[in-house]
Amino acid sequence: MISEELKKSLAERVAGAITPREATVDVMKELQAHYGWLTDEAVGEAASLLGLSPLQVEELATFYEMIYRRPVGKKVIHVCDSISCWCADCDGIIAHLKKRLGVELGGTTADGMYTLLPCACMGRCGDSPAMSVGGTPYGHLTPHLVDEILEKERRA
């Protein structure tokens, strides 16, 4: 369930839109921030706020890369595997992340801290290899730097 306060602020966002459904991505992002992922309950809540059917929300929720329709860890790691990062050995970085976290791509660590996902080009090709952790971008990755970032983000 969401608080009355959040509900009110989302309703205001929807009321300020030119058509309500224009605000769908914003509403889904806010609900995802609240629940950690876009739960079934959140889909229902988004639908009623937006005046859409749950199915109409679902077809958007499942489309976007950064909307999670399954439980994820406290922070999601998106590691870029597109061409510029490939040139900078992102395969080595991904292998290191898998080993360090003890998960495959798509997996969540046993302590529920991290989910590891590949992602499309992050637009940080000049700083490749790149990844983002909980929305914070990082570049010029080396295995050593990855370890430091994981430690820092775990504590943050």
Partner: peptide, 22 residues
């Protein structure tokens, strides 16, 4: 502020995205 997917950069897909459609 969008939420990922390359196809959103195609101009008619972008228009759908902005309208809150798939």
């Amino acid at each position: 502020l969008s939420a990922g997917r390359y196809i959103c950069g195609e101009e008619t897909a972008l228009i759908n995205a902005l309208e809150g459609k798939r």
